[in-house]
Design a protein around this nucleic acid. Structure first.
Lengths: 95, 95
DNA sequence: TCCGAATGTCAGCGTTCGCTTACATTATCA
DNA sequence: TGATAATGTAAGCGAACGCTGACATTCGGA
């Protein structure tokens, strides 16, 4: 699933946890966080620590893929422009 | 790229930023964070806020994909077990 | 070589985290 | 229906966040 917000990530986590038939207490203990924290994260807490989030994803076997090249898919070929060229031109044109 | 740690994510961010020919100040302003923060994140700060991280990824056009079903690929078919069955049996066997 | 820009570091400050503990509220099943 | 587990909420506390501002250090081009 594509995740753009903390709520998205929280949903993924909760989903996976339930699919694995784990309760919050068990998962929290397994990961090394408080149950309290897990609750807030599953609800989409945006200020949670990155590291703890990553630990949870790992514990649940969720792979996180950061795709730096969005145009790779068969979607709209957005990045048909040459950023380098644009920047270079901008530098020259506006001294 | 597969990211399991904050350092991984930091590397992806820095990479993408440079590829886009942006300096830290510019990106920071664009995202709405301090340059200070960006520096720490690019260095792999694990306690950064999830929400801010997501904002940066978004601003850089980096898509985050959370794959809840790792066994989908052609890797080791780990989850050949029926968790439901196991749990059910455990409940019966230990009243 | 030298100068400016980009990057990294430091200190201080108000805010918020994540933790613990205890108590509601809501499933879930015999 | 009633009991037990699972989930959600609240308050209080030490620690760390992210910010501002100023100052090193390194990089890149003339």
């Amino acid at each position: 699933m594509l995740t753009r917000t903390a709520a998205d990530l929280g949903a993924v986590i909760r989903d996976r946890r339930k699919r694995l038939k784990l309760d919050q207490s068990t998962l929290a203990k397994k990961v090394g966080v408080s149950r309290q924290w897990l609750i807030e994260v599953e609800h989409g807490h945006p200020r949670a620590e990155l590291g703890l989030i990553l630990r949870v994803l790992d514990a649940l076997g969720i792979k996180l893929d950061a795709d730096s090249n969005p145009s790779a898919g068969r979607g709209v070929p957005k990045t048909a422009v040459d950023l380098d060229a644009i920047v270079a031109k901008a530098k020259k044109g506006k001294p």
